[in-house]
Design a protein around this nucleic acid. Structure first.
Length: 484
RNA sequence: GGCGACGUGGCCAAGAGGUUAAGGCGGGGGUCUGCAAAACCCCUAUUCACCGGUUCGAAUCCGGUCGUCGCCUCCA
């Protein structure tokens, strides 16, 4: 299988360093609810992990929680709560969101605040080797010491200095130097260190955690394209300088960003839709089909129209996957070509759009084969199995509860109309619970249809439709479901 | 200003030198059904932003033009 590596910019044959695939995905800064852009990234790397596992690799997946940094401190202060209260709340909510999207939990989700000794150790190590220096309680990384700084983001120090947006730092030797350890300001969380009280800079926690949980060199490091510079570039600088081993990461994977209108969806721009809000309108499968319909490295624009289309597609797949019956006793539907197409697509740098296309074709051919009397149980199993690699659950949308009062009223009204006919209703009035009323209405409608009283039969169906219940007449009988 | 992407049917989106340009959604027609729903069948891009070039052959490679976006500052 092939994976595009951001450093080379090319598809590279995937060969893990050791027996276990070591995968690190950049996590969140928990000061607000995660938005669909985050969801996109984590869904993509969830699929990467699921596919690697499907291919027989043992995967160790680590994702950080950066629970101390400027934004968090600002938000906590503004809300008048502690950093810990804020981050614990949103970390919990984040994992609830991930669960709701059917994203597998990483094996470790370390917090920056619980990795302080390792961060201090790495910072000290960088000072000892001459890659970093302390000034007034701050520790900076000496970027000029590296000849290959910029190899990930494809930029040179010269270029960057020419740009107008480099902040000329406090007591830095060079404006491009970045901070590893920040001296504490009043009212900030801080830890004791060789340089006085302080807290970690932004990039160092990922390097420290990666080394701690996965070792000095890892296979896959993932994140959104907006992390390429400076975050990942600086991680490389820190990690490779500290361990002396290159490369820190064998395959850098970056997903394209979710656009909202003309701009990317982001916390700072405020143009976001939270995962929670999106899940009120769409299912996890719907969002996954939306995201996986596009190649992961390309940007994608959030529009209700596009997600509704994906939702409709996801529902169709679910209907096929969940349909009862194995088809006729004829010969088997041959599911192998679809499986092969799926695997070929996924092997080619996780080409999920083509993998999905194979699933849609399989779904159609299951239905077709079934109509022709073929045996399709294996096809259905394959659909569920391959869909599972994409993290699809094939679960129906959570159905809103039926309004029993309205349903009873409807049944009473039908009951009254029966008095003018030869049909018998329920003398004591309709029962109290939904299932019993539906059972009554469906069996009544069956009799009406048999007696060719289509007018009243259709009135039942239409009235039910008005209160959000859909009837489907099938050869085996009539079923009902809540309309969504 | 520097670096990097991208522009394919009504909408979303694959394809990256060569048989009929995937798939989803939507739309039109049909089969099934008392009528619906679901499902299935058929149709819905002679054409891939525009202009040149390379080639026997180009959405696919090269040059230019226009347009959109990302990064260069916190960000998945």
């Amino acid at each position: 299988m092939k994976i595009t590596d951001t450093v080379s910019g090319k598809k590279e044959e995937f060969k893990p360093i050791g027996d276990e695939v070591k995968m690190y995905v950049c996590g969140i800064n928990p000061y607000a609810d995660a938005h669909v852009g985050h969801g996109m990234s984590y869904i993509i790397f969830d699929v990467v992990r699921r596919y690697l596992e499907y291919r027989g690799y043992k995967v160790k997946h680590v994702e950080n929680v950066t629970d101390v940094e400027d934004n968090i401190i600002n938000h906590a202060n503004r809300q008048g709560i502690t950093v810990k209260e804020l981050t614990e709340k949103f970390t919990l909510r984040y994992f609830e969101d991930m669960d709701a999207l059917n994203i597998l939990r990483p094996h470790h989700t370390p917090k920056a605040t619980e990795t302080i000794p390792e961060i201090i150790n790495m910072t000290q190590g960088l000072i000892d080797k001459g890659y970093a220096y302390a000034v007034e309680g701050n520790v900076y990384f000496r970027v000029g010491k590296l000849s290959d700084y910029g190899k990930l983001s494809k930029r040179s120090l010269k270029q960057m200095k020419a740009g107008a947006r480099v902040e000329v730092g406090e007591a830095k030797e060079d404006p491009m130097d970045f901070v590893l350890w920040k001296a504490a300001k009043p009212d900030e969380p801080s830890w004791d260190s060789p340089w006085g009280k302080g807290r970690p800079g932004w990039h160092i926690e990922c390097s420290a955690m990666s080394v701690k949980y996965l070792g000095e060199q890892i296979d896959i490091h993932g994140g959104g394209q907006d992390l390429v510079f400076p975050h990942h570039e600086n991680e490389i600088a820190q990690s490779e300088s500290f361990t002396g081993k290159k490369p820190f990461v064998k395959y850098w994977m970056h997903n394209g960003l979710l656009q909202m209108g003309a701009e990317k969806m982001s916390k700072s721009l405020g143009n976001l839709i939270t995962i929670r809000d999106a899940l009120k309108k769409y299912t996890a499968d719907g969002l996954r089909v939306f995201i996986l319909s596009s190649y992961y490295r390309s940007p994608l624009t959030y529009t209700d129209e596009a997600i509704e289309a994906a939702q409709a597609g996801a529902e169709r797949l679910a209907r096929v996957a969940n349909k009862e019956g194995k088809g006729g006793g004829g010969k088997d539907l041959d599911e192998k070509p679809y499986r092969q197409r799926f695997l070929d697509a996924m092997d080619d740098d996780f080409n999920t759009p083509q993998a999905l296309a194979a699933l849609f074709d399989l779904a159609r051919d299951i239905n077709r084969a079934e109509e022709e009397g073929m045996y399709v149980a294996k096809g259905r199993e394959t659909l569920k199995e391959l869909g599972g690699i994409l993290g699809l659950t094939f679960k129906a949308k959570d159905e809103p509860p039926v309004d029993v009062k309205l349903l009873r009223k409807l049944a009473l009204s039908i009951n009254e109309k029966l008095e003018k006919t030869s049909f018998k209703g329920i003398t004591n009035g309709p029962p109290e619970d939904t299932d019993a009323i539906m059972k009554f209405l469906i069996s009544l409608r069956k009799k009406l249809r048999e007696a060719k009283n289509f007018q009243l039969a259709d009135e039942i169906r239409n009235s039910l439709s008005e209160i959000g219940i859909a009837l489907e007449d099938k050869p085996q009988g009539t079923t009902w479901k809540r309309k969504t």
